[in-house]
Design a protein around this nucleic acid. Structure first.
Ligand code: ZN
Ligand code: ZN
Ligand code: ZN
Ligand code: ZN
Lengths: 151, 151
DNA sequence: CCTAAAATATTATCCTATAACAGTTTCGAA
DNA sequence: TTCGAAACTGTTATAGGATAATATTTTAGG
């Protein structure tokens, strides 16, 4: 197995395929390949990392090709952007959600997505107190993962 | 009063001053002016917005000047970076904290910092379950603020 | 004073992302 | 079956955000 790669959850591609069929979106080569690249990486990938990988499977791709595919999968909940890293990861939840939580290991770069559908109560209370109506949220927790901590 | 500005909490500058004295940091013109600029803005400012403002008070500043000042105040907890906007705001808490929570109005651009010193329990549980040791976190909640919602 | 550390100035460049427009593919209605 | 609109991609250029590298200045302390 190549470093930085793992067997992608085959379901993700299947899911993507049926999602596209169902919603009449086109599962084009750029979209398919970009999803594969992000989905098989063990670490978040920057857009230009993806571009480089994409260059190995389609001819001479340019940034907009990558960014369009990223935008597409992001809008439909298949990938997330890690804001603090300018990088992208595949969603681990298997369904769309308004909020995301990531644990990001500053040692090894691994990202664990935890999945809470609801904003935790203290935070909900806080938005309520400010009469603020949340539409989406993103929590990025930096720290050290179990594997790295044991060294 | 100028649009986009308000009276800065005078305490912030005082606090910054005593903080620098106490820790033997230099409160230089770039640092002072950048903190003033961020602190008097009602909205998050991008680094190049700050650069433009800074150009009105010191001669011909360059990006590294701004970024160094940003880094300084950020490290010492006086300002925060809003990742989803590539922009910076003054801390509203008055003391350093490991975690930040922001409510960001997608209508008017206002940012409200809420202040919880602790990671909420469901999230703490989640990190504990993954034996992940958090060091810092950032939550950005997008939505609509009370003022905008009432239109 | 003189020196070392801290901080700034300057130049150039890198990384990230998007605007604008031309060309292609797809699918359904005429 | 063809043709037209919508969806999508290709290509070029550029905008926007951040930093590397090196030279110079400022400051505090011996
Ligand atoms: Zn997800
Ligand atoms: Zn790790
Ligand atoms: Zn704060
Ligand atoms: Zn608002």
């Amino acid at each position: 197995m190549l470093a930085g790669q793992m067997n992608m959850n085959a379901n993700v591609l299947k899911q993507a395929q049926s999602y596209c069929e169902e919603h009449k979106y086109r599962l084009t080569q750029p979209r398919l390949q970009v999803l594969k690249i992000i989905g098989t990486s063990t670490k978040p990938l920057g857009a230009y990392d993806i571009l480089e990988e994409l260059g190995k499977v389609i001819a001479n791709p340019k940034p907009p090709t990558v960014y369009r595919a990223i935008e597409f999968w992001q809008q439909h909940g298949f990938i997330h952007r890690i804001e603090s890293l300018n990088a992208y990861v595949a969603c681990e939840a298997g369904h769309q959600h308004k909020g995301s939580q990531f644990m990001i290991c500053d040692d090894c770069g691994a990202v664990i997505e935890t999945h809470l559908c609801e904003l935790p109560k203290p935070l909900k209370d806080s938005t309520a107190k400010n009469t603020f109506t949340p539409s989406r949220w993103n929590l990025e927790i930096h720290g050290v993962c179990a594997a790295c901590d044991s060294y």
